[in-house]
Computed example of a mutant assay.
Amino acid sequence: MILLLLGANLGDRIRALHRANELLADRVGVVAQRSAIYETAPWGVTDQPTYLNQVVAVETTLPPDELLRQTQAIEQALGRVRLERWGARLIDIDMLYYGQLIIQTPHLTIPHPYLHQRRFTLVPLAEIAPDFLHPILQKTTLELLTECTDTSEVKIFNS
């Protein structure tokens, strides 16, 4: 299972998530599952607008490095400009898991190194993959969520 986190906190956030889903289907493969959309507090750099986040499960034949290239191309197509780490953005697509692969390169770390520390990731992830086992920590998503010390607000978005 390949799991991605989508996030947006600038512009038309709903449209950005919908377009990201469409472009993932066009360029990456089948979007097999989608969590609800959650409104979440910013993490890291907190002086910015709230985010909308969604986790999607995709089926693809692309290897991890090409999947990363495609997700970054989608971000760019949707207007993302990288100015500040953890800063505000029109769209963000993070690779959380690529099956049970463990990858550490200068450009890609899988599983995502912060996913177990972030409620905005774990809550939507638990919705569609509650029993997915973290290949390094050897804990399920639900276990990681239960142990997470992040107290940031994460609530279902009602448009």
Rank of each mutant, 00 (worst) to 15 (best):
E59G: 09
L68K: 04
L10T: 02
D65K: 07
T146A: 15
M95P: 05
A16E: 06
D131P: 01
K139C: 05
N53V: 11
L24S: 02
L17K: 12
R27H: 07
T140F: 03
A32K: 15
D47H: 12
R19F: 09
R89E: 07
L115F: 06
Q138Y: 00
P63H: 12
L96I: 15
P124D: 11
D131T: 09
T149H: 06
L90C: 01
Q138L: 10
S159V: 04
I102R: 09
Q70R: 11
I2W: 15
I136W: 00
L101S: 15
T109R: 10
E75P: 01
R15S: 11
Y98P: 00
I91S: 03
L3W: 13
L96S: 03
R80L: 01
T46D: 15
T140P: 03
L122A: 13
I128W: 10
I93P: 01
E22I: 07
L122K: 08
T121D: 14
L23P: 00
Q76V: 00
V45D: 03
Q70V: 07
R118Y: 06
T46Y: 06
L144G: 15
M1F: 06
W86D: 05
Q76H: 08
Y114L: 08
A126D: 04
E22L: 06
R89T: 00
Y114D: 08
A16Q: 15
N158A: 09
L144A: 13
I74Q: 14
D94Q: 10
H107T: 12
V81A: 13
P106N: 10
T121G: 12
K155V: 08
Y38W: 13
H116P: 03
P124C: 13
E66H: 09
Q117M: 11
N9F: 10
R27A: 00
T151S: 10
L68T: 11
A8P: 06
L4P: 10
I128D: 11
D94Y: 08
I128S: 06
D131N: 12
R15V: 07
L96G: 05
I156V: 10
Q138R: 08
L78H: 05
A73M: 04
T50K: 10
L3T: 14
D92E: 00
S152P: 01
P124F: 15
L68P: 11
